[in-house]
Structures are given as C-alpha cells and as structure tokens.
Amino acid sequence: MSDFLHGLTRFRRGSWELLASVLIAVGVVMLMQPLVLWAYTYSFIVTLTGTVMFIVVSHFPD
C-alpha cells in the first residue's frame, strides 16, 4: 500500500494507471446498474474522466 501511495505522490505511471483503470471500471458498473438514477446519470462523466486520466498518465515516467 505504501508503494502505491508513494507512486501517486511521485507521479509514477503504475499507480496512476491503476487508479484510472479503477475509475473506468466504476463508471461502467454505474452505467450498467438499473437501480440508482444518480449513478446512471454520472456514469458517463466518471468513465470519461478515467479515460482522459489514463491517456494523460500514459505519458508519466515509469
């Protein structure tokens, strides 16, 4: 866990890519669930944020 947090504070690719991937996955789950309207409403924004974050983070150093 400390390696993950250290990678976030030092702007390393691995930790930020993991965070962006989790954000994309959460957005897709929010999109596919049928019960909560606010989750469906914000699912596109969450998925888009994760995708843009992944594109930006892919330029960080290893």
Score class of each variant (00 low, 15 high):
residue 1 M to P: 10
residue 1 M to Y: 09
residue 2 S to Y: 07
residue 2 S to C: 01
residue 3 D to P: 07
residue 3 D to T: 08
residue 4 F to R: 00
residue 5 L to N: 07
residue 6 H to K: 11
residue 6 H to A: 09
residue 8 L to I: 02
residue 10 R to M: 07
residue 10 R to P: 00
residue 11 F to E: 03
residue 11 F to G: 00
residue 11 F to D: 06
residue 11 F to K: 03
residue 12 R to K: 12
residue 14 G to T: 11
residue 15 S to M: 03
residue 17 E to R: 06
residue 20 A to P: 00
residue 20 A to K: 03
residue 22 V to A: 15
residue 23 L to P: 01
residue 23 L to E: 10
residue 24 I to K: 05
residue 25 A to M: 11
residue 25 A to K: 05
residue 25 A to W: 08
residue 25 A to I: 14
residue 25 A to R: 06
residue 26 V to S: 09
residue 27 G to C: 10
residue 27 G to I: 10
residue 28 V to Q: 06
residue 28 V to I: 15
residue 29 V to A: 15
residue 32 M to G: 13
residue 33 Q to Y: 07
residue 35 L to G: 11
residue 36 V to M: 08
residue 36 V to P: 03
residue 36 V to A: 10
residue 37 L to A: 15
residue 37 L to C: 01
residue 39 A to E: 11
residue 39 A to F: 15
residue 39 A to R: 14
residue 39 A to C: 13
residue 41 T to F: 14
residue 41 T to I: 12
residue 41 T to Q: 15
residue 42 Y to P: 03
residue 42 Y to K: 07
residue 42 Y to T: 13
residue 43 S to Y: 09
residue 45 I to P: 02
residue 45 I to C: 06
residue 46 V to L: 12
residue 46 V to D: 05
residue 47 T to W: 04
residue 48 L to G: 11
residue 49 T to P: 01
residue 51 T to C: 03
residue 52 V to P: 02
residue 53 M to G: 07
residue 53 M to P: 01
residue 53 M to C: 04
residue 53 M to V: 01
residue 54 F to S: 09
residue 55 I to T: 01
residue 56 V to R: 10
residue 56 V to F: 04
residue 56 V to D: 09
residue 59 H to D: 02
residue 60 F to W: 02
residue 60 F to P: 02
residue 62 D to F: 05
